[in-house]
Amino acid sequence: MQKSLHIDPGKCTGCLQCEMACSYDNEGAFNPSKSRIKVFAFHDEGRFVPYTCTQCDEAWCMQACPVDAISVDAATGAKVVSDARCVGCKVCTIACPFGTINYNADTGKVVKCDLCEGDPACATACPTDAITFIDANWTGLERMRAWAAKTDSGAQASA
């Protein structure tokens, strides 16, 4: 079963545990500035929104890369950057409509979410289940369940 990262901003408190987990997994230090998932705080509205690569099937980054440095991990469906091939041209960062692939000036390569080989550190670290790693075919299941619970509830109560 292929899995997807699923984000529910309503549950996010903005604690950045996900950013620390991501950076540790990839960089070996707690360093939110190197995280591949970012939490955006919309202060004036009181909203926190985690955001990262959604692993497009026909990924703009992958198609734009002139040196075929981005490939699909068959096991996870993740689009993965090969550091050996990447030349740091940044064309992928232009192609990606979502901004989720970025250049790392320290290494001269681009970085993006690679789903941590199928065990994403951000989802494990999230204390509120705002980030989960679930069946890619049923990311809407919980939301469907919530609405289903409301449907016909009057009839249930009166029965």
Partner: peptide, 19 residues
């Protein structure tokens, strides 16, 4: 109360966001 919010790294999140 709009919602609760956390400080850095906090898994409690007692902070209040209000209007």
């Amino acid at each position: 109360l709009v919602r609760n919010g956390a400080c850095f790294g906090c898994t409690i999140a007692c902070g209040r966001v209000s209007t």
